[in-house]
Design a protein around this nucleic acid. Structure first.
Length: 587
RNA sequence: GGUCCCGUGGUGAAGUUGGAGUUCACGCCGGCCUGUCAAGCCGGAGGUCGCGGGUUCGAGUCCCGUCGGGACCGCCA
């Protein structure tokens, strides 16, 4: 399969079994070791690996020259086997070397040492960076993920349908990239944040099970886990319950993980949003480690301590001295830093308690607590001597969020470290908070999420308590993706819009092209989408999705290799009916 | 929009409380070398210390600004 007109084998595949065969190999010069005019060792590299070629005639080859070597595979002489190379028991002898192309010295070593090179430089010369084993591996992991997902989705009856990149702008959600229209100056296409609207229309169209490995584009600030453009497995199913969606998407994730690691990943756990918040303080819990939030409100129900008295929610986390000896032994400076961190996240303050031997405690607030309270606290926290307990008393949201943040700060391992902890988070709230201007609830996911059928009665009385048939998939504390059962009944959709403060007319104006088809018979349906880049990064052992993207952007949204984005000629703009504003004045 | 970290030959790093023409390793160029494998030995070239301004007798070092890279907050329905 690997042989071509120019080569018979790949460098990395040669083993003892090939000894005696004459081979032709093509690749790049990884290194050369010269021993005078009549002996040189050339390490030849292609994507499969490296093999040593012994050259006993005078050839001038240098790093990254592209060469073709023809010679005979032979066993290495006694004592010269290289255990560090998979091909280390053999070498290519009697080499005829043909230089196919010369090369300038590369700006950085094209091997593991480039892991230490500034990422901006790696990106400027990405085509060289990708020659390295690490990037070759990562891109191949990515391809495995994609092909496993395709195979699994298709074997489960999903049909791949491609959807447009050029679509109307919709004001909701993430900031869009705009594409000016040449034929209609002043009008614009938007690039899709996701194929959300298209896939729901495909359900109306009777496609039944749709999937696509789709490019999504969002003009939001970049992060280790966020790029302007990213890939999602996007899927939608008709006549399903939430369980149907979770099972099918779960199979695709499992298939991808298995394709990469060779092992069946652990069962994907399920947890409700409420439980996730109560136990982990976040809606994307990293379940690889403990330090769960402990409910303490009842412990201090009759307390004299002002900061605790009457607090809606009091919770604590225990920093186990056996697991986190450094954090548990934090001195005053570190504790102050933790307090600052807690305040930045929204807490009024942070109470710390160091547990000593025999139930003694050390804390700035110890004198305000009764012995009973201290005893109950230590018992509730299951605290041992040396442990550090951190307590927040506030409204429920703040208490959860602050402790969830501190828990992650103190205990969270790098995202790519095992074990893999997949979890479905279900029953997200339909609305999150209230718009400060209009006073109406804000959608938690998007306005087409189906409310939990048990909660419809709360619509008029307590809308913020309404749960949605919405769910996230979380891996090691990263949100891989989310989905929901959608509203297919126009009447229910109108009720949700009205709660959101969107009138019928306004809904029609904003989402008309999307809502009108639903009048022609929309099946009950639901779906999901998860990020291929994030899943691939974790499976590849990387903590940054740039490492699994061939040509990513930097955090500032630029490409150091192509210099994009670049200015364009005024004539180019004029053709699109555009003119630039003067640059903003700098004071 | 904000907080924090980084920027010194091609690459990675060192450079003390501000003090001579910045140092080291790798790489590069030349020479030697027949069993190396990050080969070895000898010699050589290569710098706007990101950029601009300020403080100072004197700035890689201190201050301000700016550009670039990174982590995070906001943002990502």
């Amino acid at each position: 399969m690997n042989s071509t007109a120019m080569r018979t084998h790949m460098c990395g595949e040669l083993r003892d079994a090939h000894i005696g065969s004459t081979v032709s190999l093509c690749g790049w010069v990884a290194r050369r070791r010269e021993h005078g005019e009549k002996l040189a060792f050339v390490d030849l590299r292609d994507h499969s690996g490296i093999v040593q070629c012994v050259v006993d005639n005078d050839v001038d080859v240098r790093s990254e020259y592209v060469i073709r070597v023809t010679g005979v595979v032979r066993a290495r002489p006694e004592g010269t086997v290289n255990a560090n190379l998979p091909t280390g028991t053999v070498e290519i002898g009697d080499c005829q070397v043909e230089v196919l192309n010369i090369a300038e010295p590369p700006p950085f070593p094209v091997d593991q040492r480039a892991d230490e090179v500034d990422e901006g430089i790696r990106l400027r010369y990405r085509y060289l960076d990708i020659r390295r084993e690490r990037m070759q591996k990562n891109l191949r992991v990515r391809a495995l993920v994609n092909s496993a997902i395709r195979r699994e989705m298709e074997s489960n009856g999903f049909l791949e349908v491609e959807t447009p990149l050029l679509m109307p702008s919709t004001p909701e959600g993430a900031r869009e990239f705009l594409v000016p229209s040449r034929k209609e100056p002043g009008s614009f296409f938007a690039l899709p944040q996701s194929p959300q609207l298209w896939k729901q229309l495909l359900m109306v169209s009777g496609i039944d099970r749709y999937y696509q490995i789709a490019k999504c584009l969002r003009d939001e600030d970049l992060r280790a886990d966020r790029q302007y453009e990213f890939m999602q497995l996007d899927a939608e199913m008709s006549f399903v319950s939430q369980d149907d969606v979770l099972e099918n998407i779960g199979r695709a994730v499992v298939a991808a993980a298995k394709a990469v690691t060779g092992e069946e990943p652990p069962t994907i756990q399920r947890i409700t949003w409420l439980e996730a918040m109560n136990r982990f303080g976040v809606d994307k819990p990293d379940m690889r480690f403990g330090m769960e939030l402990v409910e303490l409100t009842h412990v201090f129900s009759g307390t004299e301590f002002k900061a605790f008295a009457g607090a809606e929610s009091i919770k604590g986390i225990r920093v186990d001295a056996k697991v986190y000896p450094d954090a548990a032994a934090s001195g005053r400076n570190k504790l102050d830093a933790l307090t600052d961190r807690a305040k930045k996240v929204g807490a009024k303050g942070l109470v710390w308690i160091k547990v000593g031997p025999d139930g003694t405690v050390e804390s700035p607030i110890a004198k305000f607590l009764s012995e009973d309270e201290i005893r109950s606290l230590v018992t509730a926290m299951e605290a041992q001597s040396g442990d550090l307990v951190l307590i927040v008393a506030d409204n429920w949201d703040t208490t959860c969020e602050v402790l969830g943040t501190l828990r992650n700060d103190i205990g969270r391992p790098p995202v790519h470290e095992g074990p893999y902890a997949y979890v479905w988070v279900t029953e997200f709230p339909l609305f999150v908070g209230v718009d400060p201007v209009s006073g109406t609830p804000r959608p938690g996911h998007h306005p087409f999420c189906h409310p939990h059928p048990d909660d419809i009665s709360l619509f008029d009385t307590d809308p913020l308590k309404v749960r949605a048939l919405a769910y996230d998939l979380v891996l090691n504390g990263w949100e891989l993706g989310s989905g929901s059962i959608r509203i297919h009944e126009p009447e229910l959709q109108r009720r949700v819009f009205n709660l959101l403060g969107i009138s019928d007319e306004e809904a029609d104006k904003r989402f008309g092209f999307f809502l009108q088809p639903f009048r022609y018979g929309a099946p009950p349906h639901g779906g999901f989408a998860f990020g291929i880049d994030r899943l691939t990064a974790i499976l590849a052992g990387e903590e940054n999705i740039r490492e699994v993207i061939a040509f990513p952007k930097t955090q500032s949204g630029a490409d150091p290799m192509t210099s994009a984005p670049t200015p364009v000629e005024n004539s180019h703009l004029a053709e699109l009916g555009l003119r630039l504003l003067p640059p903003p004045a700098t004071s």
